[in-house]
Design a protein around this nucleic acid. Structure first.
Lengths: 248, 248
DNA sequence: GGGCGTTGTCAACGGCATTGACAGAGCCAT
DNA sequence: ATGGCTCTGTCAATGCCGTTGACAACGCCC
């Protein structure tokens, strides 16, 4: 039944308004979630965007949560796809580049729709695209010299680190600009008033910290780099302990 | 004027209900924010907790945002205090322990009130307690061999990493239990259905990944450990490059 | 003791997600 | 073709939320 309805939706022969579909709703929602879209996802805005009654959406999604979950799946799928096109096809030893590109692709996809990141980055997405990506990540790390289980652990760490940092950034960038400005001003005032005698090191670092203030992307890159250095150390240790363990 | 009112509040001689104070409101709000408090912070619940009209709070806080910001300040102050009591007094070379305790203290304080973490972990807190803590962290890293600016950068990384991971955890744990269970079930189903032939490594890792699923604390410890390994590498590099740079 | 600022109360507004009753449109079997 | 069925969009209403403005009681200072 549902299939038939979906087909019909692609050829709106009836007098009814452009028939709503799961896809058309998701597209509209994604439009609203983009930074230009207004930074808020509500049913009334969604209804206006679709030219339909807000409550019509309930015919296709049980509640807002289900809608948001579908949006996250689209988002991670896009992130995985972005990483796939950027990375080389065949097997590679460049695990560091591989992890970096994956993390930054996922981050970029989420930050293109901060609302989605804020609402659901902490939710589990059962997207199939993700599994393939994780499998590849594990294989890359295993190739680099890590035991499979440890590679999986590192992968999990990388994913959580990335999602957490993304949600963190998105939470700030989806505040209204006035609040952002106020927060930034408060921070500047606080650091300007620190007595140099009491906080000599902090005072010396203030220029650099100011540069970094809310430059989420730069901070994320730094954290990621440090984290990958840690992974490198693990790989090195692993190789020393069991130099002949490599499978490939 | 305000000071006078505060004094009076400590001796409620009047017939009026237990006079509201900034402090009493904050205490009540913290009670509501704790996991036992119900996991939701609304003005009506707050009014009920205080035995007063919900709108009375507006006489002490301009809006909810200001209230939440005050709660965050209390929370980070508590976290810093917790770290201070745990750590040794004098100077130390155990930078790794220092950073670990600081990060976990802040995380623990936030997670005692997940609501606060969700609502405001991405906001800037101009708390003075924080500055002292950061100054100390920089000095510890500097002592360990890092140039001041680089130490400050690492400190910034550590703070953001911790706050992001905390917000990430809190976002999940402050969902209603039904949703949590549903997410977990969906994840389990997804992984149980992965064809072993296509995802051999993932399949092999599933038991460990299941253990780790939503065990936020363990994942956080692992990420922190890896991150600190990265810092260790930087320190080592720094010492090799400029072995006589150390100030202490 | 008479103003006056401070503080708690009350009623109301607009926005939000969600629900249930209703209505039109396509589809099927008779 | 017609009656009934389901699918889908509409409308009105509910309950919770943050927030506001008018009002009233209280305590302070002159």
């Amino acid at each position: 039944m549902k299939a038939r309805v979906a087909e019909q939706a692609e050829q709106p022969t009836s007098k009814r308004r452009a028939a709503l579909t799961r896809e058309s709703i998701l597209e509209a929602a994604l439009r609203l979630c983009s930074p230009e879209g207004g930074g808020q996802l509500t049913f009334s805005r969604l209804g206006k965007e679709l030219g339909a009654d807000p409550t019509a959406v309930y015919r296709h999604f049980r509640d807002k949560d289900e809608l948001v979950l579908a949006l996250t799946e689209l988002t991670v799928a896009e992130g995985v796809e972005l990483a796939r096109t950027t990375l080389p096809d065949g097997p590679t030893d460049d695990w560091r580049n591989w992890l970096t590109v994956t993390a930054e692709s996922i981050r970029a996809s989420y930050l293109a729709r901060p609302v989605v990141a804020v609402l659901a980055a902490a939710r589990t997405t059962a997207s199939p695209a993700e599994a393939g990506s994780v499998e590849l990540l594990i294989s890359v790390l295993h190739r680099a010299g890590l035991p499979v289980i440890e590679a999986a652990e590192c992968c999990r760490q990388l994913v959580d680190l990335t999602l957490a940092m993304t949600q963190y950034s998105a939470a700030f960038s989806s505040l209204d600009p006035a609040t952002q400005a106020k927060d930034e001003a408060a921070w500047a005032v606080k650091y300007a008033m620190l007595p140099e005698a009491e906080y000599p090191l902090l005072h010396e670092s203030t220029p650099r910290l100011t540069e970094l203030f809310r430059d989420d992307t730069e901070v994320f890159r730094m954290i990621l780099a440090t984290f990958l250095d840690g992974i490198a150390l693990r790989i090195e240790r692993s190789r020393q302990d069991r130099p002949h363990q490599r499978v490939f």
